[in-house]
Write a protein that binds this DNA or RNA. Structure first.
Length: 663
DNA sequence: CTTTCAGACCTTTTT
DNA sequence: GGTCTGAAAG
């Protein structure tokens, strides 16, 4: 994160032992940052505005702890993505030495997974738990929904997606289904009984088959800590210093986990910004950050308000956006980075103007020497960039897209993963289902029978080869052969994936006659990803918990990242910064999202706009078309987003695009 | 039972 | 544009 470069004086004694050189914390940090770094014992809450050096503070604090003699393995750094943790530890290591790499870190989910695998026993879990991603849990729910006959009710019963959302929300908000439906899903009140029944069935299903969804990881981890004092004390003593980044986006379950983990020492530093809370759809509540001092009495609160990232002109806009927020910690960011250029509110005739403007401006910036990797185009929803993507391709501007539908979620990749999963956890009926339905002549019924045979005999190979259905014998034999080959040697993930692909190739051609070459290429990249792992267990866990955030096709980098423009959802842009930021579709009907308008979640949308605009260091452009296509009404007039429409034109300058008619 | 095909539906954000 | 669902044919 940004910092005054002129103050960057790292003094490193030449070739001396690591412990003999010292970091000059006072020279490196401002007063508030320094206080946060120097406060080592006891609970600390850092309220860090956007671009105020939050990451820098965490990095220096890790270094400070290690330098002060704390064993790195006693430090736990919980972040929003593992990439964020890795990046911080890399920076801390460059301040000190390799020791910082031994700091434990990752997301709540990945850390929970790690601990649960070590302490599976007390909560009745096996070591080979399969992690269900969102799609997997929806599949299970759908199965049970049909099995329980819930879908045959006269009144419309919610679809699997909605059900999964509701179940997840209940867990993440730590409230029971009944009150959740009452408060947030009132229109489903008549189904409460059925939903509860379904939820119970879902839980049983997962437990008996060694399956855990994302929420289970947190719940089971919490239960382990809460109900097993010995484990709790052991863990609490092992992780003596806990730091939690992006605390505004944690939910009550995660807060509870932190509370329990710190039970023997209270050494927790939570860092966050209530104005940047954008994950309430996942049960996060920015009030969590307000409650921190209550669960940790004696908390020292430190506010970081000096912004090192953006010019004053950019800050004037972001301050104006957030000033209208209904409920927040009042703070106004300031900088001494100089005035900078006034951000523009750019309007054009239609979406095409918007795309052309962005492309043209990007090409100009590149001429001026701004690397493509220092430019980002941000948007509320992943599909908002479709039009621009076409235009970028036309101009030959390389880009990566982050967020939205992911590579890992495509059917063919999930198929490949399913084969690895059944091998590791033969009880994983979700994956069995996927694997078996690929065979010609196998539908849901036959698949069920086969799975029952596999579970009953406990021996997949025998169950498959002995299955009394001559028409399927050849295919089942082939599958059994594959499983045998995979099981024989404890394969390296890469060679496992290669074996699977050999088996899967003909199936792929049959199911996707038109585009199997494209899918085949995806699968080859998947194999390449597998090659980075030592064992299949960590490979699978990572694919479920920290999949690459790139969209389909982007996993292949033909060009180095520095030479590619970034397209990203605002959610995926969290914590990052660029020289120039474009915000697409700053128009009513797109941003705020119509869903949020209907549900009265406007305040979170405002924070999203705040997060988007605070990513810019030098240049900021908000664009919107004057007409846009609406599915119901066809072409309609668009208005600028309510979050920016009323900003003083001196602060956010309106510009209209015109096309040069000269030849 | 499985496959196929047409029409409905619905599209936010993510671990 | 893609998935999901239901109905009818193989």
């Amino acid at each position: 994160m940004g910092a005054p470069p002129e103050k960057y004086v790292l003094r490193r004694a030449p070739a001396a032992a690591a412990s003999s050189w010292r970091i000059d914390y006072r020279a490196e940090l401002n007063e508030a940052q320094h206080r946060a770094v120097a406060t080592v014992e006891g609970p600390v809450l850092v309220i860090a505005g956007a671009g105020t050096g939050k990451t820098r503070t965490l990095v220096f604090r890790v270094a400070r702890l290690v330098e002060g003699g704390v064993d790195p393995a006693q430090i736990l750094l919980l972040t929003f993505t593992r990439k964020a943790a890795a990046e911080m530890l890399r920076r801390a290591s460059s301040l000190l030495d390799g020791r910082c790499e031994r700091v434990a870190g990752g997301t709540f989910h990945s850390f929970a997974n790690l601990i649960l695998r070590r302490h599976a026993h007390p909560i009745g879990l096996g070591a080979a738990v399969s992690i269900l991603d969102r799609g997997d849990s929806e599949d299970v729910i759908n199965l049970l929904r049909a099995e329980g006959g819930f879908d045959r009710k006269e009144r419309r019963f919610p679809r699997k997606q909605k059900i999964a959302e509701i179940f997840g929300m209940a867990v993440n908000k730590s409230i029971d289904l009944e009150s959740l439906v009452e408060s947030l899903y009132g229109h489903l009140a008549e189904h409460v009984g059925d939903l509860m029944e379904l939820q119970a069935a879902y839980t049983t299903y997962k437990r008996t088959r060694q399956l855990a969804d994302y929420d289970d990881l947190l719940v089971l981890f919490r239960d382990l800590l809460r109900d097993h004092a010995a484990v709790r004390d052991e863990l609490s003593r092992r992780y003596r210093y806990i730091m939690v980044d992006e605390y505004q986006d944690t939910n009550s379950l995660q807060a509870e986990i932190v509370r329990l983990l710190a039970s023997t020492h209270d050494n927790v530093m939570a860092v966050g910004d209530d104005a940047q809370s954008i994950y309430s759809f996942r049960g996060a509540d920015f009030r969590n950050i307000m409650d921190f001092p209550r669960s940790f009495p004696g908390t020292r609160v430190i506010a970081l308000e000096e912004n090192y990232r953006s010019t004053q002109a950019v800050l004037d806009v972001t301050n104006a956006i957030i000033a209208a927020a209904r409920e927040r910690h009042a703070k106004t960011l300031f900088t001494d980075r100089g005035p900078g250029q006034v951000p523009l509110l750019v309007s054009g005739e239609n979406e095409h103007y918007q795309s052309r403007f962005v492309c043209q401006r990007i090409l100009e910036l590149r001429e001026e020497g701004v690397p493509l990797g220092e430019i980002a185009v941000l948007f509320r929803s992943s599909f908002h960039s479709f039009g621009l993507e076409v235009e970028l391709n036309r101009h030959g501007i390389p880009f990566v897209k982050r967020g939205g539908f992911k590579f890992i979620e495509t059917a063919h990749i999930k198929d490949a993963i399913a084969h690895v999963r059944v091998l590791l956890n033969p009880l994983d009926s979700v994956s069995w289902h996927r694997v078996l339905l690929l065979l010609e002549g196998v539908g849901p019924r036959t698949s069920e029978e086969l799975i029952r045979a596999v579970v009953d005999t406990g021996d997949p190979v025998t169950a498959l080869t002995q299955f009394p259905r001559p028409g399927l014998a050849t295919d089942l034999r082939a599958l059994a052969n594959l499983l045998e080959t995979l099981a024989e040697a404890r394969h390296h993930p890469e060679s496992m994936v290669e074996q699977i692909l050999e088996y899967y190739e003909p199936i792929l051609k049959r199911i996707h006659p038109d585009d199997h070459p494209k899918r085949r290429r995806d699968l080859d990249h998947f194999a390449a990803m597998a090659s980075r792992y030592e064992n299949p267990e960590t490979f699978l866990a990572d694919m479920a918990l920290e999949p690459p955030n790139e969209s389909v096709g982007d996993v292949v980098a033909e060009v180095e990242d520095e030479e590619r423009l970034i397209l990203s959802t605002i959610h995926s842009a969290k914590g990052l910064e660029w020289h120039t930021v474009f915000v697409l579709w700053a128009a009513e009907g797109r941003f705020p999202s119509p869903y949020s308008v209907a549900d009265d979640d406007i305040e979170e949308e405002r924070r999203l706009m705040y997060v988007a605009t605070t990513r810019a260091k030098e240049l900021l452009y908000l664009t919107y078309p004057i007409t846009m296509f609406d599915r119901q009404n066809g072409i309609v007039l668009a208005r600028p987003s309510r979050f920016v429409a009323d900003i003083d034109p001196e602060i956010l300058r309106p510009i209209a695009l015109v096309i040069d008619m000269e030849p």
